[in-house]
């Protein structure tokens, strides 16, 4: 229900930060975020407010968690088949 967009903090001035989203910068307010935020940190933005500092190691952790779901019952034949199918189509640049 709520559009949340992650971005990287470029600079901080009091409760206001400039945040970079894929090369576009926008001012984002920091009043709602529950941890100190500095340049280089990643934040989740909703309607002009940062609502969460995203620890970047969590991204790797989440992906590992998804792999675990798959490993619950590895089916190598099927996986090879899928890999072949997807390898044939072009990925996102």
């Amino acid at each position: 229900m709520c559009l949340g967009v992650p971005g990287r903090v470029v600079s901080v001035n009091g409760f206001s930060a400039v945040v970079d989203f894929w090369g576009v910068q926008k001012q984002v307010l920091l009043h709602l975020v529950d941890e100190p935020v500095g340049p280089g940190d990643y934040v989740l933005n909703h309607v002009g407010y940062a609502i969460r500092k995203i620890p970047s190691e969590d991204i790797a952790a989440t992906l590992a968690m998804y792999d675990q779901l798959l490993d619950a019952k590895p089916e190598d034949l099927m996986r090879q088949d899928i890999e072949g199918e997807v390898g044939a189509s072009k990925g996102r640049p």
């Binding site: 992650p6 894929w22 998804y66 798959l70």
Partner: peptide, 17 residues
């Protein structure tokens, strides 16, 4: 990190899931 969120759009993993 913003680009890394694109890793959550990996069609191969999506098919597996």
């Amino acid at each position: 990190a913003p680009l890394r969120t694109l890793e959550f759009r990996d069609p191969l993993k999506a098919k597996q899931l």
